[in-house]
Simulated scan of single mutants.
Amino acid sequence: MTMSKGERMKSAREKIKEQQAVERVRERRRRTMTYVTVGVVAVAAVGAGWLYAASRSQSEEAASGTQAPVTVQPDGSVVMAMAGVDKPVLDVYEDFQCPACKQLETVSGQTFKNLAAEGKAKVVYHPISIFQQEPTKGNSQRAAAAARCVADGRQWLAFHDLLYKNQPSETVKGFTTSDLVSWGKEAGVTASGFEQCVTSQQHAQAQSAYSAKIIKEQKIQGTPTVKLNGTDLPNNVAFAPQQLRDQVTKAAK
Rank of each mutant, 00 (worst) to 15 (best):
L90P: 02
T199I: 03
K120M: 12
A81E: 15
A238E: 02
R24Y: 07
Q196S: 11
A68R: 09
Q20V: 14
Q67S: 13
E23F: 12
L163N: 06
P168D: 00
C101E: 13
S211D: 14
V72L: 07
R24M: 10
D152W: 07
P88N: 10
L115G: 08
Q202M: 02
E186M: 03
P234K: 00
A12V: 15
T136G: 04
P241D: 15
D86L: 05
G76R: 00
A53D: 11
A209L: 11
K102Q: 14
D152R: 08
K137N: 04
K10T: 11
A21M: 06
E170G: 13
I130G: 02
S182C: 00
M80E: 13
G188H: 01
K87N: 09
R30T: 00
G174R: 04
T199G: 04
L51C: 07
A145S: 15
A187S: 07
Q247H: 04
I215Y: 10
V248N: 12
E94W: 14
V181Q: 05
K5M: 10
V89F: 11
A240S: 08
K227C: 04
P234C: 02
T2I: 13
C101L: 05
F239L: 11
T2S: 09
F112Y: 15
N139S: 09
A146Y: 00
D232L: 01
Q243N: 08
A81R: 04
K113S: 12
A81S: 14
C98I: 01
S77T: 14
S208F: 06
I16F: 08
A62S: 12
K15R: 13
F194M: 01
G84F: 14
G109I: 13
V189N: 00
E61G: 08
D246A: 06
P127Q: 03
F96S: 00
A45Q: 12
K227E: 00
Y35N: 12
P74R: 05
A145M: 08
E60G: 09
M82Q: 15
H126P: 02
Q132L: 10
S108C: 06
A204W: 04
V41I: 12
V189I: 07
A12S: 12
P234A: 06
E27D: 15
Q132E: 08
R154E: 08
E14V: 10
S192M: 07
F112N: 08
Y210C: 00
S11H: 06
Y164E: 09
V181L: 06
K10C: 05
G109W: 01
E27R: 02
S64P: 07
T106G: 04
V198A: 00
F96M: 01
V38H: 10
T199H: 03
N236H: 10
K10A: 15
Y164P: 03
K15L: 07
S192K: 02
A48H: 02
Q19V: 09
L51V: 12
S108K: 13
T111N: 03
A44Y: 10
A206H: 02
V189E: 01
G230A: 06
